[in-house]
Design a protein around this nucleic acid. Sequence first.
RNA 1: GAUCCCGUAGCUCAGUGGUAGAGCAUCUGACUUUUAAUCAGAGGGCCGAUGGUUCGAGACCAUCCGGGAUCACCA
Length: 531
Amino acid sequence: MQFNGNYPTLRRIFNVYNTIFHFSLKIFMSDFIRNDQELRRLEELEHLRSAGINPYPALFEKTHSSKTILSTFSDDAPPASFSVSVAGRIMAIRKMGKATFCHIQDAEGKIQIYIKKDDLPEFYELLPMLDIGDIIGIEGYVFRTRTGEISVHSRSAALLCKSLTPIPIPKEEIDEQGNKVVHDAFADKELRYRRRYVDLIVNPNIREVFRKRSKIISTMRRFFDDRGWLEVETPILQPLYGGASARPFVTHHNALDVQLYMRIALELYLKRLIVGGFDGVYEIGKNFRNEGMDKTHNPEFTMMEIYIAYKDYHWMMEMVEDLFSTIAMEVNGNYEVKVGENHINLAPPYRRATMFDLLTEATNMNLRGLSREELLSAAKTLKVEVEPTASQMKILDEIFSQTVQPTLIQPTFVMDFPVEMSPLAKAHRTEEGLVERFELYANAGELTNCFTELNDPLDQRARLEEQASIRADGDDEAMQLDEDFLFSIEVGMPPTAGLGIGIDRLVMLITGQESIRDVLFFPQMKPENKS
RNA sequence: GAUCCCGUAGCUCAGUGGUAGAGCAUCUGACUUUUAAUCAGAGGGCCGAUGGUUCGAGACCAUCCGGGAUCACCA
């Protein structure tokens, strides 16, 4: 693990090999070497090996992280009394003749390393073979430099991984006002998404978004588990798709020689489990929809759906308030989040209003019960653009999206949708033509969808048959008729409330990100075509 | 699919028709508490591709390729 070998000869080896090696590398590895810097790093690698150094050792005993060193160090302790062993990626090298400063970066931050030639003559000889991007391990003691930075004074050092390709090197400066200025930032969005690992190295602040993502999900899981609800897994490959209006990805199973679909929703299988006798089940998993991509849509995305027997959508609204405020507090330490210019307060209670009341508020028109033609003329009056061929519900949805939705910055439960928009929701207990459903909006975006679930088997069959006929008329997003699901409802499902949460959008809200791509490690990209 | 913008050194970007540029990175040298380290020097380019206009194109025009943003489609 430690460097050893005959270092005075290293220079000679370097020189002797240089000519031969340079040419042979160029010939044999021309496909892999993209520039002079990579060629040079390959040479360095070979030179290190020929000096008896393993550039990829298996293990390093690390005792401290950069963060613990910085938070534990005390100026009152006796000098050189705080011994540590740290490892990380070299992010900066400042060579000052016979002393060198490096910053290494580990999972929790950066720390400065001080290497003096007198302390480590053999390692010092090798320093020219190391580059920004290499990973090293350092054993030494912690001290504060003359300029005040807590640093590790090396007593021994080892190369842990030689990096063969240069990474972008942003530099940070603290300007006169005390603000951090980043120079040469790695800002090319495409490259950041395609090479997320480089992005994570170079822009470590984005790791924070993903740590929060993880915490949001673990908090949610604990919240549900503490209440005794069961986490389950249901099929992703399905013979029929359903539970939402969307076009699916189609695949094929060779052994059975059948066409299968990637699921577009979790709903229909989770309800079967409520039929099966569980009181509360939830699943967190990927859904796949074969549709467009934009700031709020990725072809695969993470959905949480939960079904609780003997509850309704009123109960679920309180549960959502409880859940979202708990997550905000656990993850951010307060209820307020800032997304763009909007400050959103997630402290309960959230506003509750029916869809048609909100429409009336925004348009001064009563749109309930209007025919397709009447809605079309209302849209015209409101200057809402709709396709001339749009269905009645599509027009209504469009009016809502353009007039109401942009105003829903603070969390708002939008309640009671038309039955035609909700084939799996229970008819409203008092309002004709509506269903017991809510969507929670915040920052002008939909976060959750919930119904009192439809458990009347005859009504459910009629609704899905209606979907099937819409489908037969050419709407390939209408639901398929899933006889096994209908059979399960005929067996009998208790009164149940169901809720879906788009996890990616929740993460966007909680972390203040404005694009779904910034909360996914590897967002879907066009294939990379080199021209 | 539509509109707009972008493509120049490893990275970030200047370059409005006349010899291809800067900072960082890389290489050589100096420097034993530096920190955007500094100082002195060096190498590095099919200017996305093809065609055109011109005495002359990185720049102007056309087409194509790649990418981004907005919209549309879509929760």
